[in-house]
């Protein structure tokens, strides 16, 4: 099957920059995948997101090489408006990405731009709000909403356009831990129940690692790792180099591994670690 995202040898320089923001990127994503993307600040994560939704090079100028294909469309040759129905985007700042005053109108914005008839628009707004689980907020003023609720509105506004892919650029960076978990759980649901391919850019590895099957790490404009979170977090040199915030429980088991005490899979969450630790202590006790 044709992959939904295919980035081929993509290189991009921002105007007046001698250093490439992205260099020789190759990335293939199959429809229905849930992909995590991480890396230090300035690694090129946002640039990659902007290349996927066509902002680069249609809106943001610069020098580029290679090609980005999304759902069979070459993003450099397709107007942003056409891509809007294929790939939805959510950004970091919940305040700046919302244009309307009322939730319903925010969802209507994209549909109005695509000249969707009024009746169909109402129905699609309702459906998108249901999918995101915020149907009760429909007539609320955006000003009254919390940061997490605003991000859900931004997600619903993207979902209303029925995209096949959602790209989210650090959507939880301004949210508290609970809001963060809610957003990630919502994205998992959209991925599982509606088959939307999700690309989540995220710095909080402890949130991301247990929830995504595949993690891509960027550093200095290059992909330096593309594997399961377990495999990536096992590489001490890599995680130190990237400054990845390794979950403490994972770090503990890494130490146990180094000491030759533990040989199983690295746990990514506390529950898992507790279970493994219990098993480890149990087996030692029975041996003694």
């Amino acid at each position: 099957m044709e992959p939904i995202i295919k980035v081929e040898n993509f290189t991009f320089y921002y105007p007046d920059s001698q250093v490439p923001a992205l260099a020789g990127i190759n990335l293939t994503v199959q429809a229905g995948e849930f992909l995590g993307l991480t890396g230090p600040t300035g690694a090129g994560k946002t640039t990659l997101a902007l290349a996927l939704n066509g902002i680069i090079p249609n809106f943001q100028g610069g020098r580029m090489g290679g090609r980005v294909m999304v759902a069979g469309l070459d993003t450099a040759k397709t107007p942003c408006a056409r891509l809007a129905g294929v790939i939805g985007s959510v950004f970091q700042d919940p305040e700046a990405q919302l244009v309307a005053e009322v939730v319903e109108d925010e969802l209507a914005f994209g549909l109005e731009n695509l000249a969707v008839p009024r009746e169909e628009m109402r129905q699609r707004i309702g459906a998108a709000l249901e999918m995101v689980g915020i149907a009760s907020l429909r007539h609320r003023s955006l000003r009254e909403l919390s940061g997490g609720q605003k991000q859900k509105v931004a997600i619903a506004a993207a979902v209303a356009l029925r995209p096949r892919v959602l790209v989210l650029d650090e959507p939880t960076s301004e949210l508290d831990p609970r809001g963060t978990l809610e957003i990630v759980a919502l994205l998992q649901r959209l991925n599982r129940d509606y088959g939307i391919t999700i690309l989540l850019i995220e710095q909080k590895i402890s949130v991301l690692a247990p929830r995504v099957p595949r993690l891509v790490c960027l550093n200095k404009g290059r992909i330096v790792a593309d594997a399961s979170p377990r495999q990536i977090l096992a590489q001490e040199k890599l995680t130190t180099e990237l400054g990845l915030e390794v979950p403490p429980v994972t770090a503990l088991f890494r130490m146990l591994r180094r000491a030759g005490v533990y040989h199983g899979d690295l746990p990514l969450e506390v529950d898992e670690g507790q279970r493994e630790l219990g098993r480890l202590l149990g087996s030692r006790a029975s041996r003694a």
Partner: peptide
């Protein structure tokens, strides 16, 4: 950021409709 967010939601695609 707002301009980019509007751009990704088909702003300026051509004739538009209105919810209200």
């Amino acid at each position: 950021t707002m301009a980019i967010s509007m751009e990704t939601r088909a702003f300026g695609a051509g004739p538009r409709t209105s919810l209200h």
